[in-house]
Computed example of a mutant assay.
Amino acid sequence: MLITQKLWERNYNLASLSLNTKFVQGIKNGDLPKTKFQEYLAQDYFFLESFARAYGLAVSKSRNKKIIKTLSVLLSGVSEELILHETYAKEWDIDLTTNLIGPATKKYTDFLEEVSLNLSLIEIMSAMTPCMRLYSWLGKKLLNMISDNPYKEWILTYSDKSFDNLAKSLENLIDEYDESYDIEQVNFLYKRSMELELDFFNAYSSFS
């Protein structure tokens, strides 16, 4: 079994908890309050910016041309996602210029910054992969949605094959990594990312 498959299976319970948050189920059912989705989108913009910086630092720590090329493509994908979020912001009446970072978002971005500044390439990728794999998995889980779901575009974005391919390309770099590393440290970082994702979704799950 590939290392990323093992990491996913070891932390599958956290993915299931994320799926069952009121926020994610609200997206699936289309009954998530608009204000909660607005808050989430505004905060996710901070996270995507942090993700982009982490990719840049990962590139700076690699001497492998294939890894640099793949990470650069992934960085470009995040840039496109940021543009998509700006479009979402206009559609959902969100003013990103007055946006302040929330506690759950800051915990996640601080974690990514600390890892990407201070740790190795494999550790950075291990901290970043869970977000990609989780969103792809959630998108597929939510695909059987009601036809007039206001969050249809979000679901289609993350359930799309192209997003799954981005997740796989990052996972492949971990699976093919040929330098020695501590598997327990890698799992610790992977698990911590999954926990922070869960906290992020829970931050927008308090509604009746």
Rank of each mutant, 00 (worst) to 15 (best):
T129M: 10
E123M: 01
F188I: 08
Y204G: 01
E9P: 06
Y108V: 03
Y88T: 01
L48W: 04
T35C: 06
K65Q: 11
E9C: 15
A54F: 06
L142F: 07
I101R: 04
S116E: 03
P103Y: 10
E123P: 00
S136C: 09
N20I: 08
L100C: 09
E153H: 08
E86I: 09
N144E: 07
L117A: 08
E86G: 07
T105E: 01
Y151M: 10
Y190D: 03
E81H: 12
P150Q: 12
R10K: 14
S120Q: 11
I67K: 13
E184M: 07
N99S: 11
F47I: 08
F46Q: 03
G139T: 07
D148V: 09
E9R: 09
L173G: 01
A104Q: 07
H85Q: 07
A42W: 00
I124G: 01
I146P: 08
F37Q: 00
F47C: 00
I68V: 15
I83H: 15
L196M: 05
F200H: 03
L14Y: 06
G102A: 05
Q5D: 11
M125P: 07
I68S: 15
S72H: 15
N99I: 05
N144S: 10
E9W: 10
S126W: 02
G102Y: 05
D110Y: 08
S136G: 10
E91C: 09
K36A: 02
K6P: 11
V73N: 15
L166I: 13
N144A: 15
T129V: 12
V115R: 00
N202K: 06
T129C: 13
T105D: 02
I94L: 04
A203Q: 04
K6Y: 10
S126C: 06
A15I: 05
Y151G: 05
F47Q: 02
A104R: 00
K65S: 14
D175I: 13
E179I: 14
Y55K: 09
L71Q: 05
D148K: 10
M132H: 08
Y135W: 06
Q185N: 14
I122Y: 03
K90V: 10
S169I: 14
E184S: 14
V115K: 04
I183Y: 07
K36I: 05
L156V: 04
Q38P: 04
K106Y: 11
M128V: 06
P130F: 04
T4D: 06
S120W: 02
S62C: 11
A167R: 03
I67L: 13
V115S: 02
S18A: 13
